[in-house]
Simulated scan of single mutants.
Amino acid sequence: MIRLLIVDDHPVVRDGLRGMLTGDDEFEVLGEAADGAEAVTLAETLRPDVVLMDLRMPGTDGVRAIGMLRERGVPARVLVLTTYDTDSDVLPAIEAGATGYLLKDTPREELFRAVRAAARGEAVLSPSVATRLLGQVRSPAKEPLSQRELEVLGLIARGSTNREAAAHLFISEATVKTHLLHVYGKLGVKDRAAAVAVAFERGLLTPGSGPRS
């Protein structure tokens, strides 16, 4: 029997998943959590085989929760179940350690197969997510980053704040913010973490070496 923890901030979604899964003798739902912090606490206590993890939740989100589970050595496999398949959602979740990534419109039997596969440690991706990840690998950015944008992103990747990056490059903080907005647009992301993740994925940044032209 595969033991599960359901994590979603919407009670109706949790109830629906619980009803679906407990209707099959192969699955046992150990518990439910409404946010990432609660999920980590329950996972440490209940030791599920698979965690069905939503991404966008109040408080501790799914990506942070996945990272916390890895940091604390919780062996559960994490299968993301969300409505979002944008680069800024998919890449951070996979990089944080998710075993699989499914969308909430996944048919029942496909969800069951994915849970079984995740429990075996096999990677599971919905077709649209797989296509998006392949596109990230095969296609360079639509528009290359400028040298200054790479410099700003490199500093951000090393933990600098906007103010610190501005001081280092002898430019204004507003200019740093403008460069970052251009970077987000060119890489197709919405935040700093996703921009850094995509930049490393595409080889624009390399660990310890700063920005590459």
Results as ranks from 00 to 15, higher is better:
Leu111Trp: 13
Pro92Asn: 05
Phe112Met: 11
Ser128Leu: 07
Leu134Asp: 15
Val129Leu: 08
Lys104Arg: 01
Ser128Ala: 15
Gly100Tyr: 15
Val137His: 12
Thr131Ser: 15
Val124Ala: 05
Gly121Ala: 05
Ser126Glu: 10
Val137Ala: 08
Arg108Pro: 02
Ile94Val: 15
Glu122Lys: 04
Arg108Met: 02
Val124Leu: 07
Glu95Arg: 08
Ile94Ser: 01
Arg120Asn: 09
Leu111Pro: 12
Thr106Arg: 02
Asp105Tyr: 02
Ile94Thr: 09
Gly97Tyr: 06
Ala123Phe: 12
Ala98Tyr: 12
Ala117Glu: 06
Ile94Cys: 14
Leu133Glu: 07
Ala130Gln: 14
Ala123Gln: 11
Thr131Met: 09
Glu122Arg: 10
Lys104Phe: 07
Ala93Glu: 15
Ala118Cys: 09
Pro92Ser: 10
Thr99Glu: 15
Gly121Tyr: 04
Thr106Met: 03
Gly135Met: 07
Leu125Ile: 07
Arg113His: 10
Pro92Trp: 01
Phe112Arg: 08
Lys104Tyr: 00
Leu103Asn: 08
Glu95Gln: 13
Ala118Lys: 00
Glu109Ser: 15
Leu111Arg: 06
Val129Ser: 02
Ser126Ile: 00
Phe112Trp: 05
Leu103Met: 06
Arg120Thr: 05
Gly97Trp: 11
Glu110Pro: 00
Pro127Gln: 06
Gly121Pro: 04
Ala96Cys: 07
Ala123Met: 13
Gln136Trp: 02
Ala130Tyr: 01
Ala119Leu: 06
Glu122His: 03
Leu111Gln: 05
Glu110Val: 04
Arg108Gln: 12
Arg108Lys: 06
Arg116Ser: 04
Arg116Ala: 02
Leu111Glu: 06
Leu102Pro: 03
Arg108Glu: 15
Leu133Tyr: 09
Gly97Val: 08
Leu134Tyr: 13
Leu111Val: 00
Glu122Cys: 03
Pro107Asp: 12
Gln136Met: 15
Ile94Phe: 06
Arg108Ile: 03
Gln136Asp: 02
